[in-house]
Structures are given as structure tokens and as C-alpha cells.
Amino acid sequence: MLTGLGVATRQVRQPGDLVGLDAVVIPGGESSTMSLLAERSGLLDSLADRLGAGLPAFGTCAGAILLGREILDGRPDQRCLGVIDIAVRRNAYGRQVDSFEEPLTVVGLDSPLVGAFIRAPVIESVGPTVEVLSEIDAIDGARQPVLCRERTITVCTFHPELGDDTRLHEMFIESI
């Protein structure tokens, strides 16, 4: 998707892969698996250093969990990077049969964007300096943030990387 927008990309699997990057995207996947593998390869610590030094990041679903300050319902050994002030409950909607799509109103976009929520997490609390750019109605009627930004870090609990609506990726690229 980023290549389609004219951006040069590379996959990051090891610490050395981070050298020279202007920004990182942490996509969906299993957050516990990603945390485990990134920790084993030393990538997690290198990434923490670079993000701390201002490297912009866009995390979707598992990526949002990894970038957040606190993980609820995670594995006990699961780490997060704490570069955006949110607490995220992992896999909070139920099993795969409860995964869903829903149209979202997004600050800065003039028409709705359909979000795909797949075994998605819920952002349960956000700090005072976090901007909430989109929310959905929870079952209990409360509003749940699904797209947030703090300084150079953007996260969402759905998967804009699935499908052909590139607007959130464009927003992220423009913000770099």
C-alpha cells in the first residue's frame, strides 16, 4: 500500500534494518508473537531507542498494542514500548466470529472510512495529550477511541492496510 503511494519501503526484522528509516509502520498480527520475536532478535530495544528519539510510527491493531503504555489481558511476558499514552485491552471483542467491519467518521476526512476490526483490541483509556481522531459506539453505549495520535505516533485498532482506502496512510506520510 505504501509502495503504491510512492514511498520506498523495507521489511524490518532485525535491529540493523532500522538504520536510515524515516518512519516505521507496525502492522497487524499477533501482538504477543511480535513482542516475543522482536525481543529475541534485539529489535524491540533498538526500536524503543529510535522511537524515543522521535522516529514517527503508525501502529495498526497489534502495532497499537505494541506502541501503547499499558497492555490489558496480554501475556505476562508481553512487552510494550510506551510511546503513546494509551491502555489497550487485547482481543477485546471476542473470538474471530465477532470480528467486524464498521464505517468510521475520522477527523480530517470528508467521508467515512470502513474499518476492519479483526480480533481487535480496545483502547480503554487515553492520556491528556492524546488526540482521538475516530471513535465507535461500544455495546454499553460508551464511545471507544479507535484512531489516536500523540506527537509522531499514530495508532488504530482496525486494519487500514486491508483494502484499497489509502487515506490514513496518506495522512501518516504527510505527518512525517
Binding site: 498480527g29 466470529v97 470480528s99 476492519a116 480480533r119 459506539d137 455495546i139 486491508l162
Partner: peptide, 23 residues
């Protein structure tokens, strides 16, 4: 929540997308 839709092709294929690179 009227536009809330489960079991769509994107959501079903999407979980497989999320497992890519894994075991």
C-alpha cells in the same frame, strides 16, 4: 451499531493476512 457487520470477506481473509510470516 446498525452498520456493524461480521463475517465479511475482508474480515475473514484478513485474519489469514495477519498470520503471514508465522507458524
Amino acid at each position: 451499531m446498525s452498520d456493524h457487520e461480521t463475517g465479511t470477506v475482508r474480515v475473514k481473509r484478513g485474519l489469514a493476512e495477519m498470520l503471514k510470516g508465522g507458524v
